[in-house]
Design a binder for these strands. Structure first.
Length: 108
DNA sequence: CGGCTGGCGTCGT
DNA sequence: TACGACGCCAGCC
């Protein structure tokens, strides 16, 4: 399984109302320094849309390690909107602590 | 703070 | 085959 496949798998497991950083995803996928690549892959993602009322690949839930949102193919505006609608609170352009996804909690 | 630099994996010339 | 573009990050002025 290639790096990109692991990335897609991980991102698809981010629960609604939570976010993960590019850096974390890269690390979990096995290449800690490849945060940038994660972004590149999101842009090329194969399933960026709804399926069974859920995002198959919720690329909008992946943000910068600083807590800021970062870029988005559909526009940073839309990214913020989607997150807000999922219940993620953003203050001063940053996601508040508490909305960050921790992999071990994803099993809950 | 801000700008620059090097590294990362994949894909398309 | 080789190169460069990317939804980034940390480290250094």
């Amino acid at each position: 399984m290639s790096f990109k496949e692991r990335v897609y798998k991980i991102v698809s497991q981010i629960p609604t109302g939570k976010v993960a950083t590019y850096q974390l995803v890269a690390k979990l996928a096995g290449s800690p320094g490849a945060a940038r690549v994660v972004g590149t892959l999101m842009k090329k993602n194969p399933n960026p849309v709804f399926k069974n009322l859920e995002f198959v690949l919720p690329c909008h839930r992946v943000i910068l390690s600083s807590g800021r949102l970062g870029e988005y193919s559909g526009g940073a505006k839309l990214k913020q909107k989607l997150l807000a609608e999922e219940g993620v609170k953003i203050k001063d352009g940053k996601v508040e602590k508490g909305y960050f996804w921790k992999k071990n909690l994803s099993l809950a």
